[in-house]
Amino acid sequence: MQSSTTAAPPVARAARRRLPLHWLGLAPFLIFAVLFLILPTMHIVLGAFRTPEGSFTLENLRGLNTDQIKAAYLISIKISLASALLGCAIGFAVAAAIVLGGLPKFIRGPLLTFSGVASNFAGVPLAFAFLATIGPVGLITVYLKTQMGIDLRLLGFNLLSFWGLTLTYLFFQIPLMILIITPALDGLKKEWREAASMLGASGLQYWRMVALPILFPSLLGTLALLFANAFGAVATAIALTGSSMNIVPILLFAQIRGDVLGNPHLGYALAFGMIVITGIANGIYIWLRARSERWLK
């Protein structure tokens, strides 16, 4: 189904594999990937374990054990997790509404296009949009204050906070979820639902025993993706908060620019920590997926 070349006779394929010439076709890509993706990353990873003189050390990693850095990691993970989970849940609800909810068909196209736009509308301009809306002098803030006498600031809401950042990140997280999960929802056959109800299952039982297990790999993969997406978001955070918020990407940004931590190699350790965390998120995804996907071809 994938390609007719996979159907080549095994003998021919074995012969081809022995020909190193074929690797040449892949060489430009491999050179690019090694030079500008793998080597830089490896350099960071190795740097995290090296002294300025070049010998092995764990001192850099130990250097992460300060209150400021630990707090930064914690708040970063919290924001990423919250925006990923909420993004998944809300995006799923909206996608389910357009695919299964019996809404008019003409809604679907524009909504998906809009999702494409919104999921790419991240970074600096997104921060401006939220500042103009619920920032200190934003549209909603001012409206609530002047028209309804509600002062968001007095209620404890601040855009430069856990919830403020999460709310902003959701603007690209939700549409990304919609874009990824809509095809998966389309893949749910009507017959499965009907067969389940013929066998006496309620709608809830169908979702619990059939639909969700089928969607599980996609849901999980998107969750991991959304987590990494939020965890590495630098531009939105900086444009929104300047450097006043203590989250890992901002800290690393400041460290690269001006060595604010006073130890050049601590930057490596900080970046290494980011790789480890997004790596763990994706590792969990791959592990769970392998366990749940035995029924897939």
Partner: peptide, 30 residues
């Protein structure tokens, strides 16, 4: 020519979604 290599190539192309851009550019600078 190399359909067996597709999953590996695909994996490499997906790495930038996992490794934060700030880490990659940090690597470039150093």
């Amino acid at each position: 020519k190399m359909p067996w290599a597709r999953p590996y190539v695909e994996f490499i192309t997906l790495l930038p979604l996992v490794i934060p851009a700030i880490v990659i550019v940090f690597g470039y600078i150093r």
